[in-house]
């Protein structure tokens, strides 16, 4: 039998963590407990964050939205702030897992799992999200793309937790898109996903275009050099198709039980056109 701790404050958490250095942090448990069941992780002392109220808030401060790591996907879905200010994230959590998974799973868990298929990641990449990491003594802020190093690999320190996700509210006249291709319409892990944040000028020309691809490499990927080619263009199927072609050449997907690398690459080339499909 292993112990399970459910601290109510961060102070309690740090004490427990100090006394149980090998303890595993648990948020919603939807990744962690599956891994333990599959014996990909050994049974260990569990340190659950669910009772720490300050991790559960979504706040807006000036131009920034601050999301506690223990905010569930359902909370994001229900939040008017997310819906109006960060639609790209909102669209992603709407297609994440299933209702009970969204009731339990958290944004912090999705980030720390660091799966290239994680649905909140491409949106967070295009939003240039910053992650606030905290230990008993200090805190630090890392851009998400620095934090995530590879599949399941992050720069989380052994005494740290992910505390908050900080996101600058996108400029006005921005539009966000999230598309995911899974093997079915619900309970589907992304075979290929794409988030996009487009900022338009008055004359509908693109001022800035950001794109992030999921499930097409060891981490979510962005290619600024390709993004830059959009600047000054107007949206059209030709532009989007061309963008897809360039991206597809850069991604590095793998084949697994869900899909072949070839299919993933093809999807990567097509997903930008989904933007067009959704607008007409």
């Amino acid at each position: 039998m292993s112990q399970v701790f459910l601290p109510h404050t961060l102070e309690e958490l740090w004490t427990i963590k100090q006394e149980n250095p090998a303890a595993l942090i648990m948020a919603g448990g939807t990744d962690l407990l599956v891994k333990i069941r599959d014996r990909k992780l050994p049974p260990a002392v569990i340190l659950a964050l669910e009772n720490i109220a300050e991790l559960r808030q979504i706040e807006r401060q000036d131009g920034e939205i601050c999301i506690g790591s223990m905010v569930t996907h359902q909370q994001l879905l229900d939040s008017p702030i997310i819906q109006t200010q960060l639609p790209v994230l909102h669209q992603a959590v709407a297609v994440l897992g299933s209702p009970p998974i969204r009731h339990m799973g958290t944004i912090g868990g999705n980030i720390c799992t660091a799966s290239p298929a994680g649905d909140t990641l491409p949106p967070l990449y295009v939003l240039n999200a910053g992650l606030e990491l905290k230990n008993a003594a200090t805190s630090r802020l890392l851009p998400i793309q620095d934090f995530i190093q590879g599949p399941g690999q992050t720069l989380l320190g052994s005494n740290e937790i992910l505390y908050k996700i900080r996101i600058s509210i996108p400029a006005p006249h921005s539009q966000g898109f999230y598309f995911k291709v899974g093997q079915r319409k619900a309970l589907a892990i992304a075979i290929c996903s794409m988030a996009s944040l487009l900022q338009f000028a008055e004359d509908k020309r693109i001022l800035e275009g950001r794109f992030a691809w999921g499930s097409t490499g060891p981490t979510v990927m962005r290619f600024p050099e390709v993004e830059n080619t959009l600047i000054g263009e107007k949206l059209s199927p030709i532009i989007l198709g061309r963008l897809g072609q360039s991206m597809a050449a850069l991604v590095s997907p793998i084949s697994d039980v869900r899909a072949s690398a070839e299919y993933r690459r093809l999807l990567a080339s097509k997903l930008p056109l989904k933007i067009w499909q959704s607008l007409i």
Partner: peptide, 23 residues
């Protein structure tokens, strides 16, 4: 349902895809 030389690749409901109510 996928097998590779007798080895199950679709081991459970996460990879063996049943239709959900949405499909």
């Amino acid at each position: 349902f996928k097998l590779d030389r007798g080895e199950l690749m679709t081991r459970n409901l996460a990879t063996y895809i049943l239709p959900t109510s949405m499909d």
